[in-house]
């Protein structure tokens, strides 16, 4: 059954997964931002932690999107 999938269908499926991962990463980012800025009481540390989260997530999502675009 898997073998029967066309290359186009696989790519479409991967794009769907990509956008789901993107949405998940954004939602988690918002939740983490809320927690850090409400409970951590340390603006510098909160900003740093969020910057690292955004940077790493962006890097990984870019890698996923890059792989799809190159294909």
């Amino acid at each position: 059954m898997i073998a029967a999938l066309s290359s186009g269908a696989v790519e479409t499926g991967l794009w769907v997964v990509f956008f789901a991962a993107l949405a998940l990463a954004v939602c988690l980012g918002l939740i983490l931002a809320y927690h850090w800025f409400v409970h951590a009481h340390n603006t510098v540390m909160s900003a740093l932690a969020l910057a690292i989260y955004i940077a790493v997530s962006f890097l990984l999502l870019s890698a996923m999107a890059g792989a799809l675009l190159i294909a």
Partner: peptide
Amino acid sequence: LIVSFASALWIL
């Protein structure tokens, strides 16, 4: 493509 994509997804 699938392996690269899945790896990045896994790490994410």
